[in-house]
Amino acid sequence: MKLRVKLVERAPTERGNPLLYGLAGLAVGIVVSVLLGGLTPAGVGGTASALMTVFGEPSRWLSALPYFTAIAASAAGLALAYRAGFITIGAEGQMVAGMIVAYWLLGRVGAGLAAGLFAAALAGVLLGALVAALRLYLLVNETLASLMLNYVVVSVLNYLVGGPWSAGGFTRTAPLPPDRTLGVATAATIVLATVLLVEAAYRFTRLGVAVDSVGLSRRAAETYGVGFHKTIMAAAAIGGALAGLGGGLYLVAVQQQLTSLNTFQSLGYGYMGILAAWLAGNVIAATLASSWLLGLLYLASTSLQISRVPWSFALAVQAIIVVFVVSAVTLSRYRIVLVRESQ
């Protein structure tokens, strides 16, 4: 006699509540993350208390606002693209490009804030459209192309801050003039409004029907007149606009100057946005919540960096949580059955 564990798929109407499963996955993911902390100088205890501090004290929650702003701006657009089956990871490069363009207009040309932010969004649109065009017309895999463009954008930034835009011999630029900056709360509000706007467009216009049908059943979509190219292009452009705008806002509200980045760590929020999008199940409005959560986790890990925990700990924790939550949500579609087997 042998016992075998089997997953039996449930009928669509009998599935478990994905939200409850997701929360359970989140809990397990946090436990595993704390255990992973044992590998760092902070230890399990230090990691646990850092998480407790950030999550337990509501007064700290607002400290995650800068991270939230940047992560949410990329996550919402990525969620839209993923819905269309367009697996881009280019939000990081689009954010950085947005920062570069915004800095150029605000810090060097002397244009107004609105123009700078608009141009930042436009830079994101162009990058997004470039990846979409490579995918649609030259059949280049969008995941690879977008990732590689991220690296290219980062090297453009490094060239600029190390050379023509360098200030005082450092690999960074001069700060923006004070009248070309914004408060973090304002920046976060702009992102919030933009994400809700995209959510509304998804829910109440043809965009939602197009994006979902193209992503789930391309053939059905095309048969009834949804343009595949048009839809992918739209999703890529909207995602690019959000990420580019997010980069511009991060520049004017948080960083206020450009500094060099390494390709590995990069700015990072565009990558976290990928995780936030999956964590939200690609529900655009829900990326607001998942971005906040990932922002808090990032905040916790920055507090750990004092005890020499590498920054990358945040990345690992965020990924662990996504893996557990997504797996748990998938599990809600199954029943677990024990099968007894002779032989």
């Binding site: 669509p12 979902d212 049908s213 789930l216 059943s217 053939r219 059905a220 979509a221 048969t223 009834y224």
Partner: peptide, 15 residues
């Protein structure tokens, strides 16, 4: 159009 296959060609199954 009534396509040859129902799921994926005529309908989005999970919607």
């Amino acid at each position: 159009v009534v396509p040859e296959q129902r799921l994926g060609w005529a309908l989005v199954p999970s919607k």
